[in-house]
């Protein structure tokens, strides 16, 4: 009985103690793709300054936006990481909660690679072929659509390997998957004239056809865990995997990235935009919190310093693809002045 009273007392105290106190630690949420970079900066920031190390949560881009747009105040996060640009609908929901002043900082690029084991030859594929291999429905050549008939890569084009199509990739909840559907699948789709035409006539159907990924077992959803895909590729030399460049960078002696449209996923070509499947990654700062939560300006300065996000910075070592000098300067200035620079 005494114990029970104690427990009730404990619950009561935390409820009281918990109610909104000042926070002396930056809170960051958002994309799992940006997580390795953001945490690296947070750690460096915590160890080299007198501020506390920021807390970084890996919630996914969409989940991060939702928390970030929850409102202004210490119980809401200060910064959110994103592996895509903020959507108009998210800006709107932010505004509804009073989060109107937001600074967008582009960090760099991330390439999405299609890779396989080093034990097999490197594949050289075009976006169109990639689309044909992975789409749910493909044109049947008579103006209509048919369920994807291709079983082997060589069915699409004789130059491709004579093995079964087997691709491990991220699930639809992942930002990597969004970017892959948009950049690679839709990119390949638009190389097919009749599908490109459809965009003008029926945009919804165009999107469904172009971004629909086959569900007959050739594309295997391997969960959010990219390193798992890498290990599965090592074990099965006929399989291909889709994941972010940093995982290729860390495991180069075991796996290789396929050339897409003739360009291999190497640092220089992703940075220059020659590699077709690359996306920008961002973080967003809640301006109302700057000056309230200690260290925000300094954290942003640390992130945007060349020793961090430059081509030779410590983030490049973690697989970040740096922006060209001019672009870096532009976003560094925007970040330092906390410009209100959301896309209108």
């Amino acid at each position: 009985m005494i114990r029970k009273t104690l427990a009730v007392a404990a619950v009561a105290t935390i409820a009281a103690a918990g109610s909104a106190e000042a926070r002396d630690q930056i809170r960051i949420v958002g994309s799992s793709t940006v997580f390795p970079f953001s945490t690296r900066v947070a750690e460096e920031f915590g160890k080299t300054t007198n501020f506390k190390t920021p807390i970084v949560e890996s919630t996914g881009t969409g989940g991060g936006m939702k928390l970030f747009c929850g409102g202004v105040g210490v119980e809401h996060p200060d910064i959110t990481n994103a592996s895509r640009q903020i959507k108009a609908s998210e800006i709107e929901s932010c505004a509804k909660a009073g989060v109107t002043a937001i600074t967008e900082v582009k960090i760099g690029y991330d390439g999405i690679v299609v890779a396989n084991s080093k034990a097999a030859p490197q594949m050289n594929i075009t976006l169109k072929q990639l689309y044909l291999a992975l789409a749910k429905d493909v044109p049947d050549g008579k103006g209509g659509l048919q369920a994807n008939p291709y079983k082997m890569w060589s069915d699409i084009d004789p130059s491709l390997p004579k093995v079964k199509i087997e691709v491990l990739g991220p699930p639809p909840t992942s930002g990597t998957r969004d970017a892959f559907s948009e950049l690679a699948m839709e990119g390949g789709c638009d190389k097919i004239d009749e599908l490109k035409e459809m965009k003008k006539t029926d945009e919804k159907k165009h999107k469904a056809v172009c971004q629909g990924i086959r569900e007959d077992g050739a594309f295997i959803e391997a969960g959010e865990n990219d390193i798992l895909i890498v290990r599965k590729l090592e074990a099965n030399k006929d399989a291909f995997g889709i994941f972010g460049y940093s995982f290729l960078d860390q495991n180069q002696e075991k796996i290789q990235g396929s050339r897409i449209n003739g360009v291999a996923p190497v640092y220089e070509d992703i940075s220059s935009g020659k590699y077709p499947v690359s996306r920008s990654i961002f973080f967003y700062v809640k301006k109302a919190h700057v000056g309230v939560i200690p260290g925000m300006r300094e954290y942003i300065a640390e992130f945007t310093a060349d020793k961090a996000w430059g081509p030779e910075g410590y983030l490049a070592d973690k697989g970040l693809i740096a922006m060209p000098d001019a672009e870096r300067a532009k976003y560094r200035a925007a970040a330092a002045n906390l410009e209100d620079n959301l896309p209108k």
Partner: peptide
């Protein structure tokens, strides 16, 4: 509830 996070301290 935010316990899946990178926390150094």
């Amino acid at each position: 509830i935010g316990m899946v996070a990178f926390i150094v301290d």
